[in-house]
């Protein structure tokens, strides 16, 4: 749903906090049924990835913010995972309506999709709850820190931003603004770094276009 003044006023940080504080740490039954509809059931790989990335995130968070903040990192990640499952379910519902299909095997078995979605959810939680208990040393985890920690290309993170905003109705205006700033930063610089997948895509689309039919005559 597009951003509206009413939505902005209605949605407060407390609303999302309440939702996340009461949400489950595990995929919902709805989400499980989407997994079961897949040609290749992605459940085990999804749970394994959440666990693996969790270990990396908590370790890097403690390294960056301070060993005294290990518990905070763990809490941030836990809420991020809850948001990740919530948004995934919402995305699948709207994709199901849009495409009239129920088998999302290829998408739900795509590591980049899940890593991008999880990174967005954790980024929103950190931006909302604050990046550390104390105000001073949380800056080290500002965006794009999460991309380095999850070894995720900025361009791949960029792909989920709009769908994430569409799928999560309880995002506040500030949270949406935060994702938008991340988006701009990616478009303006991060997506153009040398190892970006963007260059291969440009090359592929050039090859698909083929040579120009009638190159313009060179002007004298």
């Amino acid at each position: 749903p597009p951003q509206t003044p009413v939505r902005a006023v209605m949605n407060t940080i407390q609303q999302l906090m309440m939702i996340l504080n009461t949400a489950s740490d595990q995929p919902s039954e709805n989400l499980i049924s989407y997994f079961n509809n897949c040609t290749v059931n992605p459940k085990e790989s999804i749970l394994k990835r959440v666990e693996t990335i969790g270990c990396i995130f908590k370790e890097k968070f403690a390294e960056t913010v301070g060993q005294g903040c290990i518990e905070i990192g763990s809490q941030r990640y836990k809420l991020g995972v809850r948001l990740y499952y919530r948004v995934m379910e919402s995305m699948l519902k709207s994709e199901e309506e849009r495409l009239s299909i129920q088998n999302f095997s290829k998408l739900l078995n795509d590591n980049t999709f899940h890593t991008s979605l999880l990174a967005s959810a954790v980024e929103i939680v950190m931006a909302t709850y604050g990046r550390s208990g104390s105000q001073n040393n949380g800056a080290g985890t500002d965006f794009p820190w999460i991309l380095n920690v999850l070894d995720l290309k900025a361009f791949d993170f960029y792909k989920v931003i709009e769908s994430f905003i569409k799928a999560e109705a309880s995002l506040t205006r500030e949270m949406i603004k935060h994702l938008e700033r991340c988006e701009h930063r990616i478009m303006e610089s991060l997506a153009w770094q040398s190892d970006s997948p963007l260059f291969d895509l440009i090359k592929q689309s050039k090859e698909r276009e083929g040579p120009a039919d009638h190159p313009e005559p060179t002007s004298t």
């Binding site: 597009p2 995305m91 495409l99 792909k159 709009e162 769908s163 905003i165 949406i176």
Partner: peptide, 21 residues
């Protein structure tokens, strides 16, 4: 500040964006 600009076209969603269509 202006609202978020939704730029994806009708036929575009995460399935297409991640080449999973």
């Amino acid at each position: 500040a202006p609202d978020y600009h939704f730029g994806l076209e009708d036929g575009e969603g995460v399935r297409e964006l991640f080449d999973c269509d």
